[in-house]
């Protein structure tokens, strides 16, 4: 995937993040909205990505996890808890996705996993998130996305 498409994917993942949890809905409707967002990411990956590249197999899931991470910045309650969970999901997707590929002989990028792991620990120290810290965390995640 080219850096330009990767940047577009980042923007696309950021789009729904801000209004994911704004209006109260039933669990079923939340589920449907998550599924539709994931479907959009899958379609994006399918039409813009090189499907021969094994990394594409979990690319839309990474976009989804990234989107969930950013969406936690809009939460007013239990923000740190959900930030940790969302980063945990991202870490899980990358770690086990890479492990699955490693069994097929594909190279593994450990750096993004290390950064995500430290991100999970790091957010514990920012229980009270002023806007500046939130922006810093957002930049940290975008950095992980763009560079690794």
């Amino acid at each position: 995937m080219t850096p330009l498409i990767n940047a577009l994917a980042c923007l696309l993942a950021l789009l729904p993040a801000s209004f994911l949890w704004t209006s109260p809905r039933s669990i079923a409707r939340y589920g449907i909205s998550q599924a539709l967002i994931l479907l959009c990411f899958m379609l994006f990956t399918f039409f813009t990505g090189d499907m021969e590249d094994p990394m594409m197999e979990f690319y839309p899931l990474k976009m989804w996890a990234f989107c969930l991470c950013v969406s936690t910045l809009t939460l007013t309650k239990k923000r740190t808890f959900f930030m940790t969970l969302a980063q945990g999901l991202w870490f899980w997707i990358v770690f086990f996705g890479s492990l699955s590929l490693a069994y097929r002989g594909e190279p593994v990028n450990n750096l993004s996993m290390i950064l995500l792991f430290f991100g999970m620990i790091g957010v514990q120290f920012f229980k009270q998130n002023p806007k500046e810290i939130s922006l810093g965390i957002l930049i940290y995640w975008v950095g992980i996305w763009m560079l690794f």
């Binding site: 079923a28 589920g31 479907l39």
Partner: peptide, 24 residues
């Protein structure tokens, strides 16, 4: 009732995975 709601939500998410499997 919430479990039924969760069932619907999970069915949608899994449906999307089946679509992804089709793409793959």
């Amino acid at each position: 009732r919430k479990i039924e709601e969760l069932l619907i939500a999970a069915s949608w998410l899994l449906f999307v995975f089946w679509i992804w499997e089709f793409f793959q």
